[in-house]
Amino acid sequence: MGGGATRRRLALGTALLIAAGALTVAAPATAEATAENRAAPYCAGRHVLDLPFSTGTVHVYKRDGYVCAVTVPARENGARRTMSVSVQARGNRPVVDKGWYTRHAGPVTVHAGRRCVWIKGSMSAGTVSSGWILC
């Protein structure tokens, strides 16, 4: 083998190592961004709050007096499990979405205006309850 072929192979090997290192560094950030933004396609408005619990997170969005919430699992494994999300504006009854889902429960949207809301979410054994918030 000539010197030129050896240099080309060495350059190719170095380029592959650099590319693999870049993918290793970029992959965790991409996974985190995906987990945080899973609810974004379902709710309009700006993200105002996350309510994490042991098996998932309730993502809360607000726009023009409306509050929207979605429960997403901490890890998506494709299995159906019980999930729920509810949003209650003070003085009204809660709006609830509950069932056996694989990806998310909700979105649930209520008009709260300037009133406080109480948000609840659950998945399998984990639950979260916000108390009166966003007043």
Rank of each mutant, 00 (worst) to 15 (best):
D50N: 14
A112F: 10
G131T: 10
T14F: 04
C135D: 09
L23Q: 09
A11H: 04
A29P: 00
G78V: 02
T24D: 03
A89H: 04
M1I: 11
A79H: 11
A31C: 09
T109C: 10
T82Y: 08
N77S: 11
S124Q: 08
R8I: 09
A74Y: 12
G131N: 13
G2N: 14
G78F: 04
A26R: 07
V95Y: 04
R8K: 12
N37T: 15
V48P: 08
S124C: 02
S84H: 03
V72I: 15
A27T: 11
G106E: 01
T71L: 03
A19G: 12
G106W: 01
A39H: 05
W100F: 13
S86Q: 07
V128L: 02
G13K: 01
T6P: 00
H104K: 14
T82N: 11
V48I: 14
V85Q: 02
A112Q: 05
T30E: 14
G121K: 01
K98T: 15
R114Y: 06
A35F: 03
A27F: 10
T109H: 06
A39L: 07
Y66A: 04
V128D: 00
F53S: 09
K62S: 11
W118R: 13
M1V: 13
L10N: 06
L12K: 05
R8Y: 11
V95E: 07
Q88K: 13
A31S: 14
G126A: 06
K120P: 03
V67E: 01
L23P: 00
H59T: 00
S84V: 01
R90T: 13
H47W: 14
T14Y: 02
R9I: 08
L49M: 15
G13D: 04
T14H: 03
T102Y: 11
W132T: 06
R63I: 09
T57A: 02
P41A: 12
A74L: 15
A31E: 15
P52K: 10
C116P: 00
G3F: 07
R114H: 11
T55E: 13
V95I: 10
V95P: 00
